[in-house]
């Protein structure tokens, strides 16, 4: 019995194998690819983008095939040309006004982050003002909130470790905010003039915008160096609390780095995403919040 079965298998195998080979050849039909970049200026009818003959760039010639059973390589991404991106509709995106300040930079890993001095002395405003960012080494085992780590589950025996940290931080923050609020709402601090806002109000506005935008910012965890990029977006708001225009400052600085460009665009999309608007801001204070500078930095989310 067993022998018969083995025999059957051999038959199937012998007949099957050539099929496999044949399939392989079919799959490996030579691939000839020509590639041209479609012009970005799609709104110019004089330049029919679908016709490669009108291209200013030379067409990439199909490479001669070396081997009939081997796919001819498609063009490499290096052939791709991404011209400066025009903004066909200024309504939403807007043109950047001259803006000297640029904040897109790659932070050096070795640079420690500014960290708030934990002690806040309510009665010493001057000292308060002087509270320069201090440098503090990063905790080595702190992981991104967004990055899964099963190890946490079995390092539980150490209750003081990182997993506990977040829980503890929450109440601490509240009390800290309360402290600040206490300081800032002292009569000496807030000006009585009606056309001015208190620091508390200012704080609240910033918080409102931040809280509203965060859910719309799709960051990319796991991207190499994602945590080191800071993108600064300037925006003008309408009185109804919606973004009227927004632009990444000095966008051209990362036009040549696909990764930074992508990061900048996530920030721009976050600001332009109407799903997160309007911001609930006091219309009477429109003068205060009509222009906003937003600085996007996922660093803290990555925790390193």
């Amino acid at each position: 019995m067993s022998v018969t079965l083995h025999g059957a298998v051999v038959l199937v195998s012998v007949f099957g194998l050539p099929h496999i080979q044949r399939d392989l050849r079919i799959e490996d039909v030579p691939m000839v690819v020509e590639l041209v970049t479609i012009s970005n200026e799609t709104n110019l009818p004089s330049q029919p983008v679908h016709d490669p003959k009108h291209k200013s760039e030379p067409e990439i010639q199909p490479k001669p095939k070396k081997n009939a059973s081997k796919p001819v390589p498609p063009p490499t991404p290096a052939n791709e040309v991404v011209p400066p991106v025009p903004l066909p509709d200024p309504e939403a995106a807007g043109n950047p006004p001259p803006q000297p300040a640029l904040k897109v930079k790659s932070k050096l890993k070795t640079e420690p982050k500014p960290v708030l001095k934990p002690k806040v002395k309510p009665k010493a405003p001057k000292r308060f003002a002087k509270a320069k960012p201090t440098r503090k080494p990063k905790p080595p085992d702190e992981f991104a909130a967004v990055l899964k780590n099963l190890a946490k589950e079995f390092t539980k025996p150490h209750p003081t470790q990182s997993s506990e940290k977040n829980k503890k931080a929450e109440p601490a923050r509240h009390s800290f905010e309360q402290q600040i609020a206490k300081v800032l709402t002292r009569p000496r601090v807030s000006d009585a003039a009606s056309n001015r806002i208190t620091m508390t109000e200012r704080h609240a506005m910033i918080n409102t915008i931040r809280t509203a935008i965060q859910p719309c910012w799709n960051i990319q965890p796991g991207a190499k160096g994602a945590q080191d990029i800071v993108v600064v977006v300037r925006a003008t708001l309408s009185p109804d609390g919606r973004i009227r225009r927004a632009w990444v400052t000095n966008r051209s600085a990362f036009q040549n780095d696909p990764f930074k460009l992508a990061a900048a665009e996530t920030a721009q999309r976050a600001v332009l995403n109407q799903a997160c608007q309007p911001f609930k801001l006091d219309p009477r204070k429109y003068d205060v919040w009509k222009d906003v500078t937003l600085s996007f930095n996922p660093n803290e989310m990555f925790g390193r």
């Binding site: 807030s190 806002i197 910033i206 915008i209 965060q214 910012w217 906003v292 660093n299």
Partner: peptide, 19 residues
């Protein structure tokens, strides 16, 4: 302090990881 002061600066340090 007042309406004439520098514009609002918002630090956005958290996003979502939604696709």
């Amino acid at each position: 302090a007042g309406t004439a002061q520098a514009e609002l600066k918002v630090d956005v340090t958290r996003g979502t990881v939604k696709p």
